[in-house]
Amino acid sequence: MSVLSLRGIGKTFGAVAALTDIDLDVDAGQVVAVVGDNGAGKSTLVKILSGVHPPDGGTITFEGREVEIPTPAAAHKLGIATVFQDLALCENLNVIQNLFLGQEIRPLRLNDVAMETRSWELLRQLSAKIPSVRVPVAALSGGQRQTVAIARSLLGDPKIIILDEPTAALGVAQTAEVLNLVERLRENGLGVIMISHNMADVKAVADTVAVLRLGRNNGVFDVDSVSTEDIVAAITGATDNVVSRRARRGQS
């Protein structure tokens, strides 16, 4: 049974249909890459799952029960964490302060020792390469900042993590570092939704690729049995979702 299932999700903004009849399934320990051209509906889908926008129709099922996600707090409580592309880190604060910002450990006063211990636990869980949790985030590389943002998302023990363009604007070494983090999340049994434009990254870490085109599903592919060219063809509309259905039937 999938941890997260979407059926018939729709969202309109005035006369514009951003999403129409979207289906998506994410299992525990699975990385699902959601790809599509600009305007395909990826950002709207992320905002629906993170509680920013309510859907206009369809159902969201989480761990076997139908749910609503009216607010970001509701998404967090449910077990869905989102790491947005801008990361929302405070560069003048250190790693510990960023991890616990707004959710500090303080029975009576700030418990620095407990927060530092928990910070290292989270970073070790990701096999992260952070030299010190006392260093300001401004001194970290792009890959290390992404590490901090992902570690922060783990504080609520989520079941699903959404990564919005996690390797955008990163160099080769930093991209490899972030892709290793994605693999650690999968190994820890989390379901991961990765929004990406980078087909090399998708082929490197994803198990399944879900293509959106003009706000609709246009194919679900198994990464091991699909070529980059076929994925790009579905993104651009050179093929429609009939191709992906044939591919899936061939796998069964």
Rank of each mutant, 00 (worst) to 15 (best):
D25W: 07
D27T: 08
T208K: 12
E121I: 09
R65Q: 15
V52P: 04
D86C: 09
E165M: 10
L170K: 00
W120Q: 02
Q125W: 15
M1H: 10
G29N: 06
N198S: 14
V135R: 09
R134A: 11
G189E: 07
D230V: 08
E183D: 15
E121G: 05
C90W: 13
R65N: 11
E63V: 12
E116R: 01
L24T: 00
Q125L: 13
P55R: 06
A73N: 13
V172S: 08
R213M: 07
G64K: 10
G250L: 09
V242W: 13
E116A: 04
D201H: 10
L163C: 06
N217A: 06
Q97K: 08
F100R: 02
M199K: 07
G57C: 12
G79Q: 06
V133K: 00
T61N: 10
I235Q: 03
S132F: 09
R213E: 10
P166M: 08
I9S: 00
L123E: 04
R109F: 15
V242F: 14
L126E: 03
G237K: 06
L190E: 14
I69F: 06
G39Q: 01
I193N: 06
S227P: 11
I105L: 04
I195R: 02
T236S: 07
L170P: 00
L49G: 01
I195G: 01
Q174L: 05
A238F: 12
V35K: 02
I48G: 03
A168Y: 03
N241K: 08
V182I: 12
T12F: 12
S196D: 09
N180P: 10
M199T: 09
A169C: 12
L19S: 02
S2R: 09
N241Y: 07
T59G: 14
L101F: 05
N198Q: 15
H76P: 11
V242D: 14
I235V: 12
G142Q: 03
E183Y: 10
G58H: 07
H53Y: 05
E229R: 15
I150W: 02
V137C: 06
T44W: 01
G142K: 02
N217Q: 04
V192R: 07
D222T: 12
G143Y: 03
L49I: 01
P136N: 04
S43N: 11
G58C: 05
A200K: 12
Q146E: 08
L190G: 12
F100K: 02
I60Q: 03
G41P: 01
S153Q: 03
A75N: 07
G215C: 07
N198E: 15
A114Y: 10
N94S: 02
E66Q: 15
I9G: 00
T239S: 15
V35L: 04
Q251W: 04
A88Y: 02
R118F: 04
L6E: 02
T167L: 09
K11I: 08
V135L: 13
K77D: 14
V31S: 09
S252K: 15
E68V: 12
A149P: 01
V95E: 00
G64L: 10
G215W: 00
V137P: 01
L140V: 01
W120R: 09
N180E: 13
R216V: 05
K11L: 08
A17W: 12
Q85H: 08
G215T: 05
T20Y: 11
L78E: 03
D56V: 08
R245L: 06
V135G: 11
A151E: 01
R118N: 10
I130T: 07
M199H: 09
L155G: 03
